[in-house]
């Protein structure tokens, strides 16, 4: 069945394929366009470099007027990612705009890996280490980079 949300998601998919931003990929499940798998490659010059982080994006018929639910499936160690993989990211909450598409969402998450925001921590330990012990923070991130290759 075609609905406005599904038609929009097809456009998002076409854009992602014809003009893919570097370091991200994503596609809807073959039997459900409302459920997407995505991969964000850890940005260079960050502790996340070389990681392949898998995410799940769940849309509903309110898209694009409401954001999708986004969570990391891969284990993550980041000040703004909760233990269950959900993200604390303003554009997925109160600063959502219906002009964002899947490419914009994934690009924002990629830049969150680049620039964590320790002032709104979802993982207090990661936020503290990021602020106070960058060496240990980097070591913990490198651990999850290695586990990201396994599954």
């Amino acid at each position: 069945m075609s609905t406005p949300s599904r038609r929009r998601l097809m456009k998002d998919f076409k854009r992602l394929q014809s003009d893919p931003p570097g370091g991200i990929s994503g596609a809807p499940c073959s039997d459900n366009i409302m459920l997407w798998n995505a991969v964000i490659f850890g940005p260079g010059d960050t502790p996340f470099e070389d990681g392949t982080f898998k995410l799940l994006l769940q849309f509903d018929e309110t898209y694009p007027n409401k954001p999708p639910t986004v969570k990391f499936v891969s284990k993550m160690f980041h000040p703004n990612v909760y233990a269950n993989g959900e993200l604390c990211l303003d554009i997925l909450q109160n600063r959502w705009s219906p002009t964002y598409d899947v490419a914009a969402i994934l690009t924002s998450i990629q830049s969150l890996l680049h620039d964590p925001n320790p002032n709104s921590p979802a993982n207090a330990e990661a936020a503290n280490l990021y602020r106070e012990n960058r060496k240990e923070y980097t070591r913990r991130v490198r651990e999850i980079v290695e586990t990201s290759w396994e599954s």
Binding site: T3, P4, S5, R7, R8, K11, D12, R15, P64, P98, T99, D101
Partner: peptide, 11 residues
């Protein structure tokens, strides 16, 4: 919002 051209209609 819908990413369709203005000359096309909304979703």
């Amino acid at each position: 919002i819908c990413q369709s051209p203005f000359d096309a209609c909304c979703a």
